[in-house]
Computed example of a mutant assay.
Amino acid sequence: MASIFTKIIKREIPAEIIAEDENFISFLDIMPLVKGHVLVVPKKEVDYIFNMEPEDLAGLHLFAQKVAKAMDKTIKCTRIGVAVIGLEVPHVHIHLVPLRTMDDINFTRPKLKLTSEELADIADMIRGGF
């Protein structure tokens, strides 16, 4: 069964896509820790990050770096935090989280509930950083 991320990749469900190439895609988390929380995902469905082929793992991180740099240009924050949890969705993904404090990347916190308009505005802003 395809993961929710595969459904986004195939455009079966909507998402605010930030960047995409032939191997990777990034989009806003719909239940973010903070505004601007982005997920970076390989298009190839793999459940566990350390099961990825070395070149795919390296490519994922290089793609994430491009996205993080665009975020850094456009979101007011101290740094872009990186997390790989791997328990919520059985498809490899990297969380890029704008940080102002350490608590911004605390996954036990309640998630934000943003409107589709807020998500679209944030996505437009980040895309402007490329």
Rank of each mutant, 00 (worst) to 15 (best):
1 M>W: 01
4 I>R: 07
15 A>I: 10
16 E>H: 13
17 I>P: 05
20 E>I: 02
20 E>K: 03
22 E>F: 05
26 S>E: 03
27 F>P: 03
27 F>Y: 02
30 I>Q: 07
30 I>P: 01
36 G>D: 00
41 V>M: 06
46 V>S: 01
48 Y>C: 04
50 F>W: 12
52 M>H: 06
57 L>Y: 15
59 G>I: 14
60 L>F: 10
61 H>A: 08
62 L>Q: 07
68 A>S: 10
72 D>L: 14
72 D>E: 15
74 T>Q: 11
77 C>L: 06
78 T>H: 13
78 T>S: 15
78 T>A: 11
78 T>Q: 08
84 V>D: 09
86 G>E: 03
87 L>R: 11
88 E>R: 04
92 V>L: 03
93 H>F: 12
94 I>R: 05
94 I>P: 09
94 I>E: 11
95 H>Q: 04
97 V>Y: 10
99 L>Y: 09
99 L>W: 10
101 T>F: 07
101 T>H: 08
102 M>T: 12
102 M>F: 10
103 D>P: 00
103 D>R: 13
103 D>L: 09
104 D>M: 11
105 I>M: 14
105 I>Y: 09
106 N>L: 12
106 N>Y: 11
106 N>D: 15
106 N>W: 12
108 T>V: 08
109 R>K: 15
111 K>P: 03
117 E>M: 03
117 E>H: 00
118 E>K: 04
118 E>N: 04
120 A>C: 00
120 A>D: 11
121 D>H: 08
122 I>P: 01
123 A>T: 07
124 D>W: 05
125 M>C: 12
125 M>H: 07
127 R>I: 14
128 G>K: 02
128 G>M: 06
